[in-house]
Amino acid sequence: MMTCKHVTRLLSEARDRPLILSERMGLGIHLFMCSGCRHCGDQMDLLRAACRHAGGGEGEKTHLTL
């Protein structure tokens, strides 16, 4: 079982690179059980949406595929 700290690292990296299968699975299992980390991921999405919005972009795109 991944720790929350490890998961937050992966949540961030998922927004910059495609995760490998084992990372995706570990992350998925953890997120299923941990609302704190789920919220952390949502918050990172909001950060990205805010940056795109401030940059005049339309909508946001993420690399996150779970």
Partner: peptide, 27 residues
Amino acid sequence: IDTLFADNQRWTPEARPGAWESPEETL
């Protein structure tokens, strides 16, 4: 960042992220 996590590397109760309102509403 270290202060957010307990010794077992899980969120401390104070640091555990909460639910934010919807992005549309926030932005």
